[in-house]
Structures are given as structure tokens and as C-alpha cells.
Simulated assay, not measured.
Amino acid sequence: MTLTPVEPLPEREVRVRAPGKINLSLRVGAREEDGYHPLSTVFQAVSVFEEVVATPSSDRTLSVAGVQADVVPTDGTNLALRAVEVLAGHVGVDEGVHLHLEKGVPVAGGMAGGSADAAAALLACDTLWATGLSRAELIEIAAHVGADVPFLLMGHTAVGQGRGHLLTPALTRGDFHWAFAVQDRGLSTSDVYTRFDELHGGVPGPPDGQDDVPLMHALRAGDPHALGAALHNDLQMASLDLDPMLAEPLAVAEDAGALGVIVSGSGPTVAALARSRQHALALAAAFTASGVADRVLTASGPVAGARVVSSD
């Protein structure tokens, strides 16, 4: 009898996609004794994505592909590997894993690409290791990894308090369309906060978010014109001070009829709110034609948080 060779089983892999974010509003209090700034922010997840593929491994390792992959650390300083360590410690797992990151969110661009990787890594390893944690439990663990990581698991639109990790879902209606002027030069978040402190130090005590009532009304009404008028970022002045060239994409977007334009988070990505998907393409074309961006993206929001795309 002739035996037919048996093909080896394919290596199991879990692929997870997580979105980037923008801060529709970011209000920053004065730095506290622990070195952190209390925040009141309104997050929106947008359709610019990171993908993380997790496969079994004897060690815990990481590789990166995509735009700006060469500037992403692959050692223990990477937030995705940090997320793996936090999850493994929480559930008592000793297994290794290899993470492969496929970058789509700008690196050091104020859109939380690293936090999206960490959120995706948490969900991917939870699935790979069959730990059975609920989404609420993963969000709680995510707060120990980084301030933006819980929101990238939650997605959609949410109000963030504390360091941004205390989340309350926000009611929204319809979709909002964006064009992004991306710079390959990053801005260090810590440098932006330091410059913010030097410029004015923030309001005393935690911001309460009362100034964002018009913004919340605009979201509930699905009114992009009102939302554009309500966009706010306390860090924008500090980002512009560190990178004065950011004034150029801000001006281009305004001249092209953006409903609102803002530096995303700590920058340097500039986000322009459009009237429609077609208008977002027109804003992107204006960024490109004027030469004020290294890359241009368009996206819509809100979108869901980290999700398993495939699990073999």
C-alpha cells in the first residue's frame, strides 16, 4: 500500500484590524505631580487602519511592514509588545507570539498608530491564546498599556477623561468625512506637552468638558458644519510652535473650503473636515497640489474599534 504524504497543518494565525483616531476636541489641564496632564477629549475612530497578524512562536517578537516601517521600534519599547506582556501577565500565559504589524496609520502623527497596534495585539493574543476575556475586560487591561489604547478597542466616538482612558460612548448620527495632510517628520508627544507647559501650562485642575457641549450637539445631530465650527485642540499652539510649517496645510484646507481644520492630537497630521466624501477628495487634492504634505489620506468616521478579520 502506498502512503500519501500528509501535508503539515498550516500555522495558526489571527489577523486583527484597528483604526486610527482623531481628537475632535482635546482640552488639557495643568501638569500634575505625577507628571501627567488631566484631559477632557472627544475621540473619533476613522477608517485608516493598522493590521496585526499574531502567530505562535517560542519567543515574543515583532516585525513591521508598510509606510515608515523603518522608524518603528521592534524591541520591547514597541507598544504592541508591551500589550502582549501586560495581557500575558494578567492571564498567566507563558506562550510566545510573533506579531507582524502592517502600518496604515501615520507614525508619530497624532493619530495613535502605536496605540492601535497595541489594541490589535491585545485582541489578537486574546484570540490566539483562547483566554476568553470580554471586550470590557480587555479595555480595562488596555488602560495599563497606554492612554489611547482603550479607545482603539472601543472605537466609534467617545468622551475620554483622566488621561483619556476613562471612556463614555458618545451618541452620533451619520458619517463624517476627512482629509489628512500627513508629514513623514513626526512630533514627539512628550515634546509637545513640554512646550504646552512652557507656553501656558493649562487650566488649573481637570477640564470638565463643558465647552464641548456644542460639539456634542453637532455629533448627535449629524451636522458637519456645526462640528467643524466646534473642533478644538489645546495642543495645537504648541505643535505649531515646534513645527511652524504646519501653518501651511492648515491654511490650504481653509482656502479649499474645509468645514473645520485642526492638528490631530499632538500632530503633525492635519485633519480637515469635509462636506462629503467627494469634498474630502477635493481637500486631499488641494493638499497634494500645494505640496504641503508628504502623503495625503482620506477617511470617514466613526468606525468600529479593533476587530478580528480572520482566525485560522
Results as ranks from 00 to 15, higher is better:
Ala293Phe: 10
Ala108Lys: 12
Leu171Val: 15
Pro207Cys: 08
Asp197His: 02
Val16Asp: 07
Leu123Asp: 06
Ala229Gly: 12
Val159His: 04
Pro224Phe: 00
Leu235Cys: 00
Leu246Gln: 01
His100Lys: 10
Gly110Tyr: 09
Lys21Ile: 02
Leu240Gly: 00
Arg277Ser: 15
Glu102Ile: 12
Leu199Lys: 02
Ile139Ser: 12
Pro5Gly: 04
Val252Cys: 00
Pro214Phe: 01
Asp243Asn: 08
Ile22Trp: 03
Asp208Cys: 01
Val309Thr: 06
Gly174Asn: 10
Ser266Asp: 01
Glu50Val: 10
Arg277Lys: 14
Val270Trp: 11
Val203Tyr: 03
Ala18Asp: 08
Phe287Val: 03
Phe43Glu: 02
Gly164Ser: 10
Val71Gly: 07
Val149Gln: 05
Glu95Gln: 14
Asp175Glu: 15
Gly160Gln: 03
Ser115Val: 00
Gly301Ala: 08
Ala124Ser: 10
His90Ile: 01
Gly222Tyr: 06
Ala121Glu: 09
Ala306Met: 04
Ser311Gly: 10
Gly92Pro: 08
Asp117Arg: 04
Leu187Tyr: 06
Ser115Lys: 02
Met154Trp: 06
Thr298Ala: 00
Ser63Tyr: 04
Leu99Lys: 08
Pro150Trp: 07
Ala230Gln: 02
Gly186Lys: 11
Ser190Leu: 11
Gly174Ile: 10
Gln161Phe: 09
Arg17Gln: 15
